[in-house]
Amino acid sequence: MIERTPIFNAVTYAIMLGGLLVVLLPVWMAFTAATQTVEAVNRIPFSFALGDELLTNLGAAWQRGDFGTKLANSFILATGVTLGKVMIAALSAFSIVYFNYRLRTIFFWVIFVTLMLPLEVRIVPTYAIAANALAPLQAILDVTGISALIAVLSGVQVSLQWNLLNSYVGLILPLVATATGTFLYRQFFMTVPDELAEAAKMDGAGAFRFFVEILMPLSRTNMLALATIMFVYAWNQYLWPLLVTTDRGTYGTAIIALKQMVPNPYGGLPDWNVAMAAALIVMLPPVVVVALMQRWFVRGLIATEK
């Protein structure tokens, strides 16, 4: 369709440029500040001229935030959540879609409901669970009288204890326990033609073989999308790592290290240049991942939420 609308086109470009300014400004300003000296960054009005202190500031931020350890932890967290999600969600969606058993609808809803309540809302009890992940089992044993039975029979008092605080498992598992991925796979499995499974069955392939050799290769695009979404989600987690890691030196993630980067207002010139360098370090990895995976991730994001 060809239209001549020169004025409206100019308006369009103006608005798109305005949008670009809004979207770029915080990041561009962080970058500019990260290249300047402490004196330059505190000058009023703020100057957008680039300084040559970028490496110094990055180095200072790296050291103050201990980003060597923190970034490694963030990577462990993000990859752990991504891998766990991509695998567990595929398995459970496969079970729900391709097997016919009475509980499947119930299981489906049991998993589905978890979409409704984000971690932030049930943060206090989830923290209590992380302090002892075996508490539910203990309670079940107590209520059913099994632990009393064991105490009578063997004289051993059952007290199960599995502390997840300050561990990678504690960081990762609660973030895997949601339904997002299961849904993405389910929606996709529903669109796979039934004839494929029939043909596989006729050729003598079992359920597991069909899953590994036919269904998984077909879902490659969905897996990439889910992996991107989960990586960004896990990397950007703030509240949960803040609570679970009391031993920040060993298990702290890069995101929670940002808080201590806020300059102290009473300690001379605030060194925002170092703080901005830290912000850049932390925001880079997920931005790179999204930029590389943009095509798949946009499709996947839209499929998960609808």
């Binding site: 960004v232 950007n236 940002l258 925001m283 997920p286």
Partner: peptide
Amino acid sequence: YAVAAPAVSLA
């Protein structure tokens, strides 16, 4: 979408 909320808050 990809930028961490705490990082942009700092900015």
